[in-house]
């Protein structure tokens, strides 16, 4: 009786989440219609974002700059975060003394729980000046946004990678040592390949998170509609553009913002699906 109720309930929830997904997609798609009809796929490659001077309802809108800004800031973040997160995970599972593992793990989980606006403020007031004096530029820009994004996703990536490295059975490691392997060789030849699924999954989930991050990036990327020619240049990203312009935009601009949101939605969903695929495969093994 209870079992049946529970089963129905789970089925209901699963169905609901599926419909919510479909619902979001159709709403984005519907509102983006005007822009899609007007600009088609050229939207993705066009750099102009200008409302008509006389009629704010129309204008020329292209998504290239925020799309590029999103991709570049995410790329910088991933390039910094991936090796560091792997290093932390390896340190925690294979190198650190037992007494150190617990506090460091807790610290990492706490870092993952800090609201992103705090990272944004810290990045603006503390990191931006450092980056400016080291690399030049104006403080805010792609690099600053990328670095703070990296710091935000490292804990998350490190925690998932650590969990997946912890699933490597002790006897498997022992048998590699018993063949005369060093610690480094065990990490490289046994632990990394064995936890490959989890590692790739963590990278992809972190990627999804970096792509959609709004608050921290809004503080740090500069929020200007220009193509960065330098890594320290300010630019904008999809979530930041949406957050900044949503209250004032109307007509075709509004529709173009839905178009951008649709692009982000589809990309994120695709990434999460790939991650799920990897995680599922790992469980089967």
């Amino acid at each position: 009786m209870g079992g049946k109720l529970f089963k129905n309930f789970s089925f209901f929830s699963a169905t609901i989440s599926f419909f919510i997904l479909i619902g979001i997609f159709s709403i984005l798609f519907t509102y983006a219609q005007d822009s899609i009809r007007e600009f088609g796929f050229d939207f993705l490659g066009s750099e102009v974002w200008e409302a008509d001077e006389d009629d704010e309802e129309i204008g020329i809108f292209g998504g290239f700059i925020p799309i590029i800004g999103t991709l570049l800031s995410t790329l910088i973040a991933m390039a910094i975060a991936t090796p560091l997160a792997m290093g932390i995970a390896i340190f925690l599972t294979e190198i650190a003394h037992k007494t150190l593992v617990k506090p460091v793990s807790i610290a990492i989980e706490l870092l993952a729980a800090i609201p992103s606006i705090i990272y944004g403020m810290w990045g603006l007031f503390y990191l931006a000046p450092i980056i400016q004096s080291t690399f030049g530029g104006q403080g805010v820009g792609l690099l600053t946004a990328g670095v703070v994004l990296a710091i935000m996703i490292i804990p998350f990536m490190a925690a998932i990678t650590r969990d997946s490295m912890n699933t490597v059975p002790d006897v498997l490691k022992e048998s590699a040592y018993a063949m005369g392997a060093t610690k480094f060789e065990v990490i490289k030849d046994v632990i990394m390949p064995y936890s490959k699924g989890g590692i790739i999954g963590s990278i992809i989930l972190a990627l999804g998170r970096a792509l959609g991050e709004t608050m921290a990036v809004a503080f740090l990327i500069g929020s200007v509609m220009s193509i960065p020619s330098n890594i320290t240049d300010p630019t904008t990203s999809i979530p930041v553009l949406l957050a900044n312009n949503f209250s004032e935009a109307m007509g075709l601009e509004m529709s173009s913002m839905y178009y951008l949101a649709l692009v982000l939605f589809v990309v994120s969903l695709a990434i999460i699906s790939v991650a799920k695929f990897y995680f599922l495969r790992q469980k089967v093994k």
């Binding site: 006897v171 022992e174 048998s175 063949m179 005369g180 030849d189 046994v190 390949p193």
Partner: peptide, 15 residues
């Protein structure tokens, strides 16, 4: 360990 090999209870093929 190269001179004294070891086989465990469960097979442990490497991935």
């Amino acid at each position: 360990r190269q001179q004294v090999g070891m086989i465990f209870q469960k097979p442990t093929p490497f991935p």
